[in-house]
Simulated assay, not measured.
Amino acid sequence: MNKTNAIRILEAHKIEFDFAEYEVDENDLSGESVAEKIGASYEEVFKTLVAKGDKTGYCVFCIPVNYELDLKKAAKVSGNKSVELIKVKDLFPLTGYVRGGCSPIGMKKQYPTFIDETSQLFDRIFISAGVRGIQIHLNPNDLKNLLNAEFADLI
């Protein structure tokens, strides 16, 4: 396996993790599909969403794959009056990642990051390793500390 930036960063910080690989179906990049392929519940697999706030600029939200981001809650927790998800075409220039392979770890720039509070119900959660086909499995508190993120009610 080729190490991704996210994996290299976790190793450099000596954060305990493992990973799950899966076959990518370009016609179904849904998080639910990923969860099924790696044998995990939807609630423990987190997708990474990038939004732009009207006051603070770009922010990152990690939520379970079977939920939608509540934009009002996201705005409030990030210090904005409103936030809107960025367009898919803007994802790579901003983060260095593509849809279906966006990790909150190792983006081109570290944006304020918020992780849904339900992550704390699990000893470990899955997040993208930064490429389609690999999910990182790690402790949500380790992720929070690494990213200087906040747990919040986002769904």
Rank of each mutant, 00 (worst) to 15 (best):
C62S: 07
N148L: 04
G101N: 08
I9R: 00
I9V: 11
V24N: 09
V88P: 08
K109D: 05
I127L: 08
R132H: 07
K37L: 01
E16P: 04
V98H: 11
K14S: 11
Y22P: 01
P64T: 04
G79T: 10
L121P: 01
T118D: 10
V98T: 14
I7G: 05
Q135P: 00
A51G: 06
E21K: 02
E36V: 06
D153I: 15
T56V: 11
C62K: 01
Q110F: 06
N66Q: 13
N66V: 04
L71G: 03
V60T: 14
L154N: 02
D70H: 05
Y67F: 14
S119N: 04
D153Y: 09
E150P: 00
A40K: 12
K37D: 00
T56K: 12
C102Q: 10
E23K: 06
A75F: 00
E21F: 01
S82Q: 13
N2I: 15
S82F: 11
D142V: 14
E150R: 04
V60K: 00
G100A: 08
G100M: 07
E23T: 13
Y58C: 06
T4I: 13
E26G: 05
L91P: 01
G130F: 03
A149L: 14
F114C: 04
T4V: 13
A149D: 05
T48M: 03
D142H: 14
S30M: 03
L10W: 00
L49N: 07
N148Q: 13
A12V: 04
A12F: 03
S33D: 09
F122A: 04
E44I: 01
D25E: 06
L69R: 03
N2S: 14
N139P: 06
K37M: 00
D70L: 12
L121C: 10
F17N: 04
F92N: 12
E36P: 01
G53T: 13
M1V: 10
A75I: 02
P93G: 08
V88W: 02
V34R: 06
L121A: 15
V34M: 07
H137K: 15
S119V: 02
D70S: 14
L146V: 13
I86E: 10
E44M: 06
K52H: 10
L146K: 06
F114R: 04
K108W: 05
Y97M: 08
N145Y: 13
L49F: 05
H13Q: 10
E11L: 12
A12Q: 13
E21P: 00
N139G: 05
L146Y: 07
L29A: 11
K89R: 15
G106Y: 06
K89T: 00
S33E: 10
D70Y: 02
K55S: 07
T113A: 13
Y111F: 15
I86T: 14
V65E: 05
S119F: 05
G106S: 10
F114A: 04
A152T: 11
M1R: 01
I134M: 10
D70E: 14
F151W: 10
I7A: 06
L94T: 00
G106W: 04
L85G: 13
G53N: 12
K108C: 14
L147H: 09
E11D: 15
R132Y: 01
Y97I: 03
E84Y: 02
F19Y: 14
T4K: 10
F17M: 09
V98G: 01
C62M: 15
R99L: 00
L147I: 05
S103V: 07
E43C: 06
E21R: 01
T118V: 15
L143A: 08
L146C: 09
V131R: 10
